[in-house]
């Protein structure tokens, strides 16, 4: 299946909140618009500058941090693009929340049995050949759904055709190795607030920890061999010492000379 994605054109967003309402209805979340992403708002529209609305949602990274950090593999990057969450596997360590570069996963802090909540790009609707509820609801085409490659071409064309309207950057093509959700803006992204102001590397974040994790088998094998070797040498040394002591007892004429050593040897097991 082709890799799908969403293109969010900030210049076209009028801040009506239709996407958020559609999302809440689709996911049976309590109605009422919210200011920030939360356990009950998988997407929100925020007025970051006068008349400039930024829609926030899960970026659905190409190489997602959450997928890599989760100790039980509760997150999955699906072939079609969505990053989905299995609430039954989750143990609630919240490492995904701590490490997500976009601070997307949210938690049900008030529940006795809490789950992580985030946008899953309506993965079930995409699987049926449909599109996410939010893009379907957008009245201005500020959020459109399509194949990621096609969306990038579309975004490039928009910048080319209208260089005065856009800053020359498609956010999400390279950030942390690329994301399925892409942004176009009229002002430079570092003037749009978080998460855009954060200096994110172009290298996928999971590679940073993999650099350490890939050494684990080596440490186990080398450690095992070296430690066993050291133990063998030290125990052999003790055996030899013991043997020499015993021999000394037979050769009574030597025993007196090594009296001190024999005494020391008594400390051993």
């Amino acid at each position: 299946m082709a890799k799908m994605g969403i293109l969010i054109d900030i210049t076209k967003c009028i801040g009506c909140g239709a996407c958020e309402k559609a999302c809440k209805m689709r996911n049976d979340l309590p109605t009422g618009l919210e200011n920030n992403l939360s356990a009950t708002a998988y997407t929100v529209v925020q007025e970051r500058r006068p008349g400039m609305y930024v829609r926030r949602m899960c970026m659905h990274c190409e190489n997602p941090t959450c997928v890599s950090v989760c100790p039980v593999g509760a997150f999955t990057k699906t072939a079609a693009g969505p990053v989905t969450y299995d609430k039954d596997k989750c143990i609630g360590c919240r490492y995904c929340m701590y490490s997500c570069p976009f601070s997307v996963p949210k938690y049900q802090w008030d529940r006795v049995v809490p789950y992580v909540q985030k946008c899953y790009l309506c993965a079930d609707r995409i699987a049926e050949g449909s599109e996410p509820a939010c893009t379907a609801a957008c009245p201005t085409g500020a959020s459109i759904f399509g194949e990621r490659d096609a969306l990038i071409e579309d975004a490039k064309k928009r910048i080319r055709d209208n260089p005065s309207r856009y800053t020359d950057h498609i956010y999400g093509v390279q950030e942390v190795g690329g994301t399925s959700v892409l942004y176009l803006s009229s002002v430079p992204f570092d003037k749009l607030g978080e998460p855009f102001t954060m200096q994110l590397p172009h290298k996928p974040l999971p590679l940073y920890t993999w650099a350490a994790l890939e050494k684990v088998p080596t440490i186990v094998v080398v450690g095992g061999v070296v430690l066993t070797g050291i133990w063998w040498i030290t125990s052999r040394r003790d055996e030899v010492k013991k043997f020499e002591e015993r021999t000394q007892q037979h050769h009574w004429w030597q025993a007196g000379m090594k009296k001190d050593d024999t005494h020391k040897g008594g400390e051993r097991r």
Binding site: V67, C70, A74, Y95, W210
Partner: peptide, 17 residues
Amino acid sequence: GKWFDVWHPIVFWNPHS
């Protein structure tokens, strides 16, 4: 959060984590 599932890493593996 789900302390009663603390045993999950025994069954559900993610060697990248």
